[in-house]
């Protein structure tokens, strides 16, 4: 019974709403223009209030979103010092910096020579070897394939270094050369070089 009652009210109410303008007209003869003006102002104020609310909601959403960006402690993660004295020619080590692998390889003279003599201008991401190293003996790169983020092989076994003697990513078959440059496969860019510096002859600080 209650339901039926409410339903009745609702439809009556709808009628009432559409009839409201009419009744206003009935009361005041000159009311029509006034009513029109008033309704315009009302609509403007409604829009203004809605827009202000939208601005407020947008402003409030920013802290929520920004809180998911890297926090201060993450950004301030320590730089990493690596002693390379014990790294012999032809050997590689992987260190963890900011949660990602960094490849450091002590290149043989042959590898260095090959990396330097490559005709780099024709590569997909043209970079000379000298642009990518601080000391030609050592190549330091972030060990993350520029295709889709896998960790390439070649640090441990020479056989896994791919067709260009650097690294080989098994996920989708990208080949990198002795300088970490993308040579074959889907990788669009060379392996990234992290910011680092030699603080002693054979000690580097990454970050």
């Amino acid at each position: 019974m209650v339901e039926a009652k409410i339903g009745g009210i609702e439809s009556e109410n709808n009628q009432g709403k559409s009839g409201q303008g009419k009744s206003g007209q009935g009361k005041h003869d000159q009311g029509k223009a006034e009513e029109h003006q008033a309704s315009e102002r009302r609509e403007f104020l409604g829009l203004l209030a809605g827009a202000t609310g939208a601005v407020g909601a947008a402003a409030f959403s920013w802290p929520l979103i920004d809180s998911l960006n890297p926090a201060k402690d993450v950004l301030a993660l320590a730089s990493l010092e690596v002693n390379l004295e014990s790294l012999e020619e032809g050997q590689s080590i992987t260190v963890k910096w900011r949660g990602r692998p960094v490849f450091i390889r002590h290149r043989t003279q042959e590898e260095t020579k090959q990396a330097e003599e490559t005709d780099w201008k024709k590569l997909r991401d043209p970079q000379s070897d000298s642009q990518r190293v601080k000391n030609p003996q050592y190549i330091v790169v972030v060990g993350i394939c520029t295709h889709l983020g896998c960790v390439p092989l070649g640090q441990k076994e020479v056989a896994q270094r791919g067709e260009y003697g650097g690294w080989f990513c098994p996920c989708h078959g990208s080949h990198y050369d002795e300088s970490g440059r993308a040579r074959k496969g889907p990788a669009p860019l060379n392996l990234a070089v992290p910011p680092y510096e030699f603080i002693k002859d054979a000690t580097i600080r990454i970050g």
Partner: peptide, 9 residues
């Protein structure tokens, strides 16, 4: 703004 809107309505 909300007060003006509410009163107008």
């Amino acid at each position: 703004i909300a007060i003006m809107y509410k009163r107008r309505v």
